[in-house]
Nucleic acid binder design. Structure first.
Lengths: 213, 213
DNA sequence: AAGACTATACCGACCGGTTGGTATGTCGGT
DNA sequence: ACCGACATACCAACCGGTCGGTATAGTCTT
């Protein structure tokens, strides 16, 4: 029984971190700023987290848990066909691009850029969040492949990771241009790609398998 | 040509910025760190740049110029066919994923994540770099579309921006996992997508034959 | 049942070091 | 003599982190 209680300050800091770090980035966000945003004192911060880095790791794990629950509750899982679930996931990702940028961009994608070389603990927590989410997508892709007897030169895992790459890149473009439709269009290209891959089943039974190291 | 000499400290700071910011991010990089890496003093820094933010803007512009020259000199431009140039560009992007992460990742993609909401000048400089690069790719895509009389539901511009999204996302995944092959695989998916888009003329129902010269 | 002890949650003044930025001076070239 | 290109010393604000203290609730002892 480690945590059946929910201390207020801790979760307030965590949700403040999600908001502030997605707006300003990790390094530019000071502990004092976080405390002010969460409405708690510095003493409370260092009572719950050993360091700023520990907060970042906890925030990445918190992000993984909440997004996992968010996508698990999404309606696209209801489709009986696996490919429909994959396409439904992509449509869902495009549909939730609403509100301000910090509302729909990715916490771990933002943090890992700043910390991959200097804070391995944060990097690993971010990587776990991304690959964990990709694994859910991979399951539906693999099922869709099995349904259609596809034997392509690519794997379900690499396509699942590709969907995450497109999403992360779409966020960067949206941040740079200030235009959400750029991100939506990129996700649209991703959808078309998946459609094309899975509409090949009659023509491309023997597509040349790529040799890869 | 010695009349247009470049001051040593300025270019030293600029190339140091490219290296250090791609490793640590913008906010985590202090002016002192930059000066130490460039082998110059703080006085030199503020002689050439009005502020840290001004250095970031100059670095983004310097990045746009150097990468533009780098890709302009790349061999894929020699292809007479426009689609071959597009695919050659993608192959080239995959081929240059060598060395350490800071050697091939994107400066402006890293910076814009940290500054899009707090430093409009930096964000705009990053956006100009990305869209400027995308415009070069767009030209070849548009030519390839014209060559084949393609009239798809997507534009050359959106596909060009999609290539940049994939690349930026691939960098994030590589940083998170520490595995370059993840990025290479994602670029591989991008290549396959472009191939599929342009090989649709045999299978597509809504394609207009023998039109457009 | 009263008092003593303990654990958790939180407070906020405080610390040494670092931050971006400035003020002033030096020096070689023209 | 003067200007651009640096160098050095310095500053107030801010940084992550520490520390002694308080409030409250539960548990143990008597």
């Amino acid at each position: 029984m480690e945590s059946h209680d929910k201390p207020d300050a801790r979760s307030a800091l965590l949700s403040a971190a999600l908001r502030v770090i997605r707006t300003q980035g990790y390094s530019a966000t000071s502990v004092d700023t976080l405390c002010r945003a969460a409405g708690v004192t510095k003493g409370a911060f260092f009572h719950h987290f050993a360091s700023k880095e520990a907060l970042a790791v906890a925030a990445a794990q918190h992000w993984a848990i909440t997004t996992d629950a968010f996508f698990a509750a999404a309606p696209y899982h209801a489709h009986p066909d696996a490919l429909d679930r994959v396409l439904g996931y992509i449509d869902f990702r495009r549909a939730i691009l609403q509100g301000e940028l910090p509302d729909y961009t990715c916490l771990v994608g933002t943090m890992v850029q700043e910390t991959y070389a200097t804070a391995p603990a944060i990097r690993d927590a971010c990587a776990a969040s991304i690959t964990g989410h990709a694994a859910r997508v991979e399951a539906d892709i693999a099922a869709a492949m099995a349904d259609r007897g596809l034997r392509p030169g690519w794997t379900a895992r690499s396509l699942a990771l590709h969907t995450q790459a497109v999403l992360q890149g779409a966020f960067i473009l949206a941040k740079a241009t200030g235009d959400v439709t750029v991100a939506a269009d990129s996700i649209g290209h991703l959808r078309r790609y998946v459609e094309l891959l899975f509409s090949q089943d009659d023509a491309a039974a023997d597509h040349t398998p790529e040799r890869r190291s």
